[in-house]
């Protein structure tokens, strides 16, 4: 008898804190996305500024995905642009040449990216490559992809790029609507990131990042979770890259180039904070603002990125948010004492 009554009295008590923590976990995402949703109110009549803020959301998506691969499991994938480009070129070729409906082609292209990302991850883990060798292998992949884009002119248009037919004259090629499409994508990615963090996968990610051997010994299948991270992150990269191709209506070799995509992504993630939920958002906003601020000195951009990278890793090695948090924590604990 007691066995049936006990759960009834206990259940609400156990549920209430759980609900509160769910709200607390996802609230920052809603607040952030609500704030970002206000951006077009200011820029909706300027075609060029809408382009800039859409680019900001695209890179936010890239950085969240990269954060899953690098931030969560420590795999240095220097092929963010290439994986996004597989999504982009893949989806465009599938929809324009093969004639597959656009939405389906985006998903298929994302799946191809995911397969390649998973393969790279699997190679890295099964050959137990350290961070530097993972970096070199993925960089080699990145540069090969770049050469392939330039070389296979028949498929990719080579240097002159490719006009995208699928998605033309639909809502994603308008001025303001695509902003909300990408905002929805960022929202989905953030929710997914938080969901991962709170699930057993996130728990395994933290364990294997903090101490790989200890994680392995306590029964975490390191290979499996690394490959998960590689596949999920790459799928997100591929979908974001594909969506951008259809919304922009044009892709060329520099749309997904290492120097243009990977570098910005690394700067954004390290600026915002590696392994944090809102770090990518903050980093993308900050870098975009910086770019716009220096728009008249665009030749200085490359140099400035270099300075930002060097300064960040010299002084804020774990990213700005975690560094500030630890300073705040020290301040608080100092006051308590």
């Amino acid at each position: 008898m007691t066995a049936t009554t006990e759960p009834q009295t206990r259940a609400p008590r156990a549920e209430r804190p759980a609900k509160a923590s769910v709200v607390r976990a996802y609230l920052p995402i809603f607040v952030t996305v609500a704030l970002l949703a206000l951006v077009p109110l200011r820029y909706h009549d300027s075609r060029s500024m809408m382009g800039v803020v859409i680019g900001m959301l695209l890179f936010m998506a890239y950085t969240i995905a990269f954060n899953i691969i690098f931030g969560s499991t420590g795999q240095l994938f220097l092929c963010v642009g290439a994986l996004a480009g597989i999504g982009g070129f893949g989806s465009v070729i599938l929809s324009d040449r093969v004639g597959i409906p656009m939405v389906l082609s985006i998903v298929i292209a994302g799946a191809i990216s995911a397969a390649i990302g998973a393969l790279l991850s699997w190679i890295a883990v099964s050959r137990s490559l350290d961070v530097i060798f993972t970096g070199i292998v993925t960089l080699a992949f990145s540069l090969s992809f770049q050469s392939l884009i330039l070389g296979r002119r028949d498929l990719t248009g080579g240097e002159s790029g490719l006009r995208v037919e699928a998605g033309k004259d639909t809502f994603i090629s308008e001025q303001v609507q695509p902003y909300y499409v990408f905002l929805a994508l960022v929202f989905a990615y953030l929710v997914f990131y938080r969901f991962l963090q709170r699930s057993h996968i996130g728990w395994a990610f933290r364990a294997l990042r903090d101490d790989e051997i200890a994680a392995e010994l306590s029964g975490v299948d390191v290979t499996r979770y690394r490959v998960y991270a590689g596949a999920l992150g790459s799928f997100m990269l591929g979908v974001a890259g594909a969506l951008y191709a259809h919304s922009e209506g044009f892709i060329g070799p520099s749309t997904y180039a290492f120097g243009d995509v990977d570098v910005r992504t690394i700067v954004m993630l390290s600026l915002g904070g590696i392994g944090s939920l809102l770090g990518p958002v903050l980093g993308a906003v900050a870098v975009t603002a910086l770019d716009e601020w220096l728009v008249d000195y665009s030749q200085l951009q490359v140099m400035l990125y270099g300075v930002v990278i060097v300064m960040l890793f010299l002084f804020f090695r774990r990213g700005v948010i975690p560094s500030l948090e630890s300073v705040a924590a020290r301040f608080r604990s100092g006051r308590h004492r």
């Binding site: 240095l76 690394i266 030749q299 490359v302 140099m303 270099g306 300075v307 990278i309 060097v310 090695r317």
Partner: peptide
């Protein structure tokens, strides 16, 4: 160990951009 390798790699990547950016800016 690994933190050394990672920091060295990222700092040199940053430096590569500084030199590249400087040269392209001053002596295109």
């Amino acid at each position: 160990g690994e933190p050394r390798v990672l920091l060295g790699l990222l700092l040199m990547l940053g430096l590569a951009f500084i030199i590249d950016g400087f040269l392209v800016w001053r002596y295109p």
